[in-house]
Every structure is written in C-alpha cells, then in structure tokens.
Amino acid sequence: MIRTLGPNLSAPHLSANDPGFIAVHRAIGEIAAGRPVIIRDGLQAVLASPIDGGPILSGRMTLTAARAGYLGLEPAPTVVEAEPDRAVLSAIAMADAADVGRHMRAGSIANAASELAKMAERVPAMTLGSASSAPPGTLAAHAGDVLSFRHALAATQRPIASAPVPLAAGATANVTAFRNAIGGTVTAVVVGDIDRGALVRVHSACVTGDILGSLKCDCGAQLRLALGRICSEGGIVLYTAQEGRGIGLANKLRAYALQDKGLDTVDANIALGFHDDERDYAAAGNVLAQLGLSSIRLMTNNPTKAAGLATQGISVEPVPLIGPVTPDNERYLATKKTRSGHHL
C-alpha cells in the first residue's frame, strides 16, 4: 500500500500559525528526542512513548495496520498487550517474527501515535500510559491535528535562497531552496529556461546511494543520469527529503538488516510497520506550481510517483530513467518491477 495525500492542499485543515499545528510540530520534536507526549481526542487523553528510545510506559503498544497484517493479525491499526519489557515489545514492534497475545483494534489516538512516530522517523509503535501520570510540562497534541499535519505542512514550501552552482555534469544550475514552516527543504536544481513540458526529476534523498555510492540501489545512478539529462537538455531536478521511501535513514538501515534475513524491500518496510512506500508528492507539486509548471515530462520508472504528482494538479508524461543492473542491485530492481509496478 502506498501513502497518498488528497489533491486539495489549497485549504488544509491547519495553517502554520494555528496552535494545533504548532503543538504537533513540538510533539514531533519530543518523540524524535525519545520523550513521551500526551495525545488528546475529545475527553480522552493518553500518554505515548516511542518504543525505540522512549521510556516503556506499560505493556500496551500501538501497531500500524501494516505491522499487524505482517504478524498475521487483522491488517488494521492495533493495540497489543504484552509484558512491559523493552525486548519483548521491541520484538513485537519490529522483529522479523514475533508472537502476539492479547490485542484489540485501535482508535484515533493510537493512529495519531503511530503517525507522530513516523513523522519523527521512529519505528511506528508507541507504548501507552495514563495521561494523569505525565510529568508537569509534558507537551500535548490533538489526534485530529496530528492526522492533518502533513497536508498543512506540504502547503508551506516557500523559496528562501537561490544561487548559481556549476555542476560536474556540465552546466551551471540555478539552485533554489524551498523551505517549509518547520525548516524542511525541497531543493530545485534548474538548468536553462523552463516552460510547459519541462524535463523534471523528483528525486528522493538517498544517503547511501547518492553520497556513499552504495551498489544496493539505483538511486545514485538515477540522480547522476537525471543531472546529465538536464545539463544537456535543460530541466529541473527536485531533491526531496524522503530518505528510504519516506521512512528515514535509521529505519532504512533497519529494513536493510531485514533484507539480509531474506525479506525483499517491500516486505522489509511492511515488517517495520510502514507502507511499502511512505512518500507523498504534495510538497513537490507545490514547488512545481510555484515554478510555473502544470505540465511536465517526468523522469521516472515509477507509476505511483507520476500518479502522486497528478493528484496535485500536475499533468505528467513519464520518461524512462534506467540505471545499470548489477549483481548487487538485481534483486532490488526485480522487486521494484514485480511488486511495486516500476517500468523496468
């Protein structure tokens, strides 16, 4: 299953100045730091703490629908009850196999807890405790605001700074940083004059492939190919901070470890509680619109990426971008083709 955001970002539920937006932003920071937060919904309130790094509040823990289905439970958001032990709960949250005892379908607070963990790039499993036991000063957020936050955030990208940058691929690009309301950036690398039907690559950050030259994926090769194309033909590379198909570097490395145990890239993400692809393209669509583009030729083999931009009002003509097949990435590319529908 692929994460999708609705097409209408013109009137998100939250705006960046709303107290609810600010509360969620601060709650993400707390979860990223391993500190519990209070999640409210109506008269209900629960204290939630990330399983990877936060204190264990009890034996009650949230699981996403993906993780529940992987463990053989109903594929729905779930709360499990187990021994309040970190090793036991961590195995239920992210091991390649685990036994689950008592469990029940989760409500909106548990859904919001998992979403907070995802946005903080933690494993999306949170232990739950009584809000009345929260220390003074514990931050709180409303479940509805948590679940609306991504929509609101995607609409806040604004150009902050630009400069010409000479590229090794053979041209000078105008590079612009588009910053959102909490400091995240989409980087637009533009070569030449752009107009309707411009050649575009929307590239998700990959530390291992783009920077380290990993042979495990084709990300670095695709980035270099795309930069070469725009340097010779003109066009844009949008560099987006969606490492590991949107799960973050630490979780990507956890997924790599599961792949070493025999899981493919899709099942490894699902085993950790994520969709097989957590990326969304709302921010990219917003940036393209600000660049004056409503119709593009998109360098991609991924029909989901094309569809994601189309939901943002961008007319897309896919253009293949085929990198080399090697013994190290052959299985990865085969999974992209057979399980994710990439045109390879």
Rank of each mutant, 00 (worst) to 15 (best):
V175P: 04
V175F: 12
V175A: 02
A177Y: 01
A177L: 14
F178P: 05
R179D: 00
R179H: 00
A181E: 00
A181G: 09
I182L: 10
V186I: 15
V189D: 00
V190P: 01
D193F: 01
I194F: 07
I194V: 15
I194K: 05
R196N: 06
G197T: 01
A198M: 13
L199A: 13
L199C: 04
V200M: 12
R201A: 12
R201M: 10
V202N: 05
H203N: 06
S204I: 07
D210A: 05
L212I: 09
L215G: 06
D218S: 14
Q222Y: 04
L225N: 11
R229S: 15
G234F: 05
I236G: 12
Y239R: 04
E243V: 07
E243M: 07
G244D: 03
G246F: 03
I247P: 02
G248Q: 07
G248L: 06
N251I: 02
K252Y: 03
K252P: 09
R254E: 08
R254G: 06
A257Q: 11
Q259K: 08
K261D: 03
G262R: 12
D264K: 06
A268G: 11
A268R: 03
N269S: 14
L272M: 07
F274D: 07
F274G: 14
D276L: 08
D277N: 14
A283Q: 06
A283W: 03
G285T: 02
N286W: 03
V287I: 08
V287F: 01
L288F: 10
L293P: 11
T300V: 10
T300L: 08
T304P: 01
A307P: 03
L309I: 03
L309Y: 03
